[in-house]
Write a protein that binds this DNA or RNA. Structure first.
Lengths: 159, 159
DNA sequence: CATGAAAGAAGCCGTAC
DNA sequence: GTACGGCTTCTTTCATG
């Protein structure tokens, strides 16, 4: 079920995706709605799962994780239980920020954040080399995070 | 300059990365600190840029963006101004959630969120085909977002 | 059924210790 | 680091279009 969202909702989403600490009365001014209406709409979208959660976005390089790595993985077999097991392993690994199961030349794309190359090497051993279902993998080392976010382009019609 | 963070800070980061709407008094209970201390530490980390911002995380599929695409791009020339121009273009494109400039077989890795394949096709035309500096690109279509987040593994020593 | 105004509750944050 | 108190922000109620 897809909750119907009007332009007010979309504008609110746009705002809170960028900054979730704007007071609701100010949000109200920006979108021309009362504080109460803003509050109700945000709650409604949270309840409906449109807003999954509110999160503090941490700068990895400020907490000792200056390296971002993109890894692509090809599997040996696409047997469901083997895939599920890999997905669970990837999902549980704290250094893996994102994991996509993809169609195309590869089967998985991973985004990792690590302290240094040694840590990544250790992770490849743990995640890839010691997993019989990993046929091959490739590593791309990020030299610059040009853009990092999870923002969805929810602009009201015609922006 | 890297702000020194103790175990309290790391625990707080861990919590607020998952859920930034936990009241500070409850955060205090979880990490054994007073509300005021929690408040001061969070502010300190925000000011220092450790916490970049607070954001609402929106479920793309609930707002009409069910498709996640990973694109890799190879450039023709790595001339600085050409690269910068591409970075700017990618950063400004709202459908591009993430853009990494990488070393390895490719030069850029992009994560996009789109309404459907037609929209992606249009984007490739706009971003890749009409850009003379794009030598080739490859598309991986996500069939399942196994894990999506920007969380940094800031566990206090030994977790 | 969603809205705005206003009252009440909750959370934040400065001061003092 | 903790304790307190004023102030901001959030949330609920209620009357209205």
């Amino acid at each position: 079920m897809t909750l119907s969202l009007d332009d007010f909702d979309l504008k609110l989403l746009m705002e809170v995706q960028r900054d979730a600490h704007i007071p609701q009365n100010e949000l109200g001014e920006r979108v021309n709605l009362s504080t109460a209406a803003v509050n109700r709409r945000l709650r409604r979208m949270s309840d409906a799962g449109v807003i999954r959660n509110y999160a503090a976005i941490v700068a990895p390089e400020k907490v000792g994780y200056p390296l971002t790595i993109i890894a692509t993985v090809e599997v040996e077999s696409e047997q469901i239980d083997l895939l599920d097991s890999m997905k669970r392993t990837f999902a549980q690994c704290p250094e893996i920020q994102q994991c996509y199961y993809v169609a195309g030349e590869w089967d998985f794309v991973l985004i990792l954040t690590v302290r240094n190359m040694e840590e990544y090497t250790a992770l490849t051993r743990q995640l890839f080399f010691s997993n019989n279902n990993v046929k091959r993998f490739k590593t791309l080392v990020s030299m610059s995070s040009v853009k990092v976010g999870l923002g969805v382009p929810v602009a009201p019609e015609g922006v």
